[in-house]
Amino acid sequence: MEAARAGADAGGRDALARRFEAHRGRLTAVAYRMLGSRAEADDAVQEAWLKLGRTDPGTIANLGGWLTTVTGRICLDLLRSRTARREQPIDETFVPDPVIGSLAPADPEQEALRTDSVGVALLVVLENLEPDERLAFVLHDMFAVPFDDIAPVVERSPAATRQLASRARRRVRDATPSSDPDLGRQKQVLDAFMAAARGGDFDALLAVLHPDVTLRADAGTLVRGAAVSKALRGARAVAESALLFARYTAAAQQVVVNDSLGLISVVEGRLTSVMAVTVTDGRITGMYILADPERLGRLEVPGRTG
């Protein structure tokens, strides 16, 4: 009898684990948009699994909805804690953790994941929202979670939660640069940028950069605020920076960064930088460089071991 009961319990856990895995991709997407870090997103999803293990599944009418809101609540707590610990507001050099993908031809499932991805530029904007605004916007606008389900998480009425999302939506709309989604056109622009930087051609750099281009370069918390805490703006300033760091461009290779093309630099087997770009009307309008050694060490790079 005991053995039969243990076997039934194990079978129930296995079935529950399979049901959870069916939702993992969506939960990871929610957590990544909330936290801007794939590593933290994976931790949040794992915590959601642990919470599920402590809950009677018979009391859950909609497992997917339950897991989504639980994951959202975990992320909200992390964001609130992060905000409380932060001594200074995020400056203009901050770049969220990117997700690096291969340029190799993707199968339909991989291509669908890329199309459904979120750009680094949008993550920068989300990082500047208040935690409750971010949750309401991400869950409702990106994952179609009803306001009635979000309201208990942020401890507000559905109407007040709707206002949170509306406020966040305006901020996102006003601050997120438009971007050409076509990887082929992006590649033409990125090829031109790399050729100009490697060749030291200042005029060619100016031609491929939008006059109002913005460059964020995040080297980590040890230097953030100590030297440069402002983004570079304008084609001339960004072109001068590109020439200054041309040796890194010489070692760079093109990859997919989140939802678009970008560059990684690997020196002696070590990832030294990741750059995401936004391209509009044949010119680069935004450049987002992560060069923080600690955070780079946690990133996964396709085809790289060790």
Rank of each mutant, 00 (worst) to 15 (best):
A276Q: 00
A246E: 09
M275I: 04
L243W: 07
K230A: 14
G225I: 06
A235L: 04
P211I: 09
Y288T: 07
D292Y: 03
A242G: 01
R236K: 13
R304H: 02
Y288D: 01
A219P: 07
I264R: 07
G303A: 05
V238R: 07
T214P: 07
H210V: 04
S241V: 11
A217Q: 00
G297R: 08
T249A: 15
D201V: 13
D218H: 06
L243Y: 07
V301Q: 07
T272K: 15
E268Y: 13
V255L: 04
A195R: 05
A204V: 02
E300C: 11
V301L: 12
G303K: 11
V238S: 00
L263H: 12
M287E: 00
F245N: 01
G225F: 06
L222G: 01
T221G: 01
L263R: 12
V223D: 11
R270V: 15
T249M: 15
L244K: 13
V255W: 08
G220W: 07
G282C: 14
V277G: 04
R304P: 05
S273L: 04
D203M: 08
L232I: 04
L232Q: 06
S241Q: 14
L271G: 11
K230F: 12
L299D: 12
G286F: 01
R236F: 08
D201A: 15
N258D: 15
T214W: 02
R304N: 01
Y248L: 11
V266R: 14
D292F: 03
G200T: 05
